[in-house]
């Protein structure tokens, strides 16, 4: 009899294990980007999350268990001990306030440290120079500019493994947010502003990157492939872009900026030096022919309105070769956020 029960218990346990395993592996939760992180930032973010989760479970599991236990034990028909007027206990009250408070103090220290350690603006520790990529989000694709390599790519972000990736972002359209879950978290990209995100991959591979901030009809498909490759493969990719890509001039950029969906990856051999700054200066979309003509007709062209002015400004920079104002110089430009939002005095 006892053996039978034991055998049954064993069998059902293995069934349960097997079932949950198929469920998990079959649905590949464990190999999901956030769990199976591939870069220092994402790994730290994941570990932080599970540490905090573990600490909170210490408090949450007892609450769940006690609710059920009390509901069973003190049901009216059970005749358990009944104290209708008992409504206070200094001991219990003290515990109720101090235990969560202690937990919050510990978590608070974690928050303070981790927020500084994992500040997206903070350069990542590495013996290699970061690779700088300027990102412009458009409707509904990403344009990646490699200023040091003088190449560009649409919907394809290629970078060397184990080398910090320094993304500078702005939007040529509405607010968007770039995230590569396998490598770590997102930061918004906003028209007229520059934000920054530092990431790194520990392994070679191809990861999903996407815009997580709803941005209109083409939002669902606004994703790109992020590929971390060996140094040599990266050099080869750059060389190939240089030899096979076309030139991205302002006219082509305007064309690219028009709303399109499911854009196939493309590389550019040559990019205007000032493109990223120009887009920031001109506040993105308004200058790029994306405005719905009806939208502004009731106002006419306004001075300082992107539509009226900036298109000319753009060509002016192009033809005259005048660099658009840098972050400091923009103070003179009426329509521009004068500093990256990161500086506390502008944002908060």
């Amino acid at each position: 009899m006892r053996n039978r029960t034991l055998a049954f218990a064993k069998r059902s346990a293995s069934w349960a294990l097997g079932f949950s395993f198929t469920l998990l592996s079959g649905c590949s939760f464990l190999s999901s980007p956030v769990i199976d992180a591939k870069g220092p930032v994402a790994i730290a973010q994941r570990d932080l999350m599970f540490t905090a989760l573990g600490m909170m479970l210490v408090l949450v599991i007892p609450v769940i268990v006690l609710t059920i236990v009390f509901a069973v034990k003190y049901r009216a028909d059970k005749g358990a001990k009944y104290t209708p007027m008992w409504d206070n206990s200094h001991l219990i009250e003290t515990i109720c306030w101090t235990v969560p408070a202690i937990l919050v103090v510990i978590l608070g220290v974690m928050v303070w440290n981790s927020t500084h350690a994992l500040d997206p603006y903070k350069p990542l520790a590495s013996d290699q120079e970061p690779l700088r990529v300027d990102v412009i989000s458009l409707d509904w694709k990403y344009l990646f500019l490699y200023p040091d390599q003088d190449i560009g790519a649409v919907n394809e972000l290629v970078f060397p493994v184990n080398r910090p990736l320094e993304l500078h972002m702005t939007s040529g359209t509405v607010m968007t947010a770039l995230m590569i879950p396998t490598l770590g978290g997102q930061i918004y990209a906003m028209g007229g502003m520059e934000t920054e995100l530092n990431l790194m991959a520990h392994e070679e591979g191809s990861f999903m990157g996407r815009n997580t901030m709803f941005s209109g009809d083409g939002f669902s498909a606004m994703s790109f492939e992020a590929r971390s490759v060996s140094d040599t493969a990266f050099d080869a990719w750059v060389a190939a872009a240089k030899s096979q890509g076309s030139e991205l001039d302002m006219a082509r950029f305007q064309e690219l900026a028009k709303p399109t969906q499911d854009v196939a990856p493309e590389v550019y051999a040559d990019i205007p030096d000032t493109l990223f700054k120009t887009v920031i200066y001109n506040l993105g979309g308004a200058s790029m022919g994306m405005a719905d003509p009806n939208a502004h007709t009731n106002m006419g062209a306004m001075p300082g309105d992107g539509e009226g002015v900036s298109a000319q400004d753009t060509s002016a920079y192009e033809t005259d070769g005048v660099a658009p104002p840098d972050a400091q110089g923009t103070a003179t430009a009426p329509a521009t956020q004068s500093a990256a939002p990161h500086s506390p005095d502008t944002t908060d």
């Binding site: 927020t115 990161h342 908060d348």
Partner: peptide, 8 residues
């Protein structure tokens, strides 16, 4: 995720 400083 809007880019405030770590302190904030």
């Amino acid at each position: 995720t809007m880019g405030s400083s770590a302190n904030v």
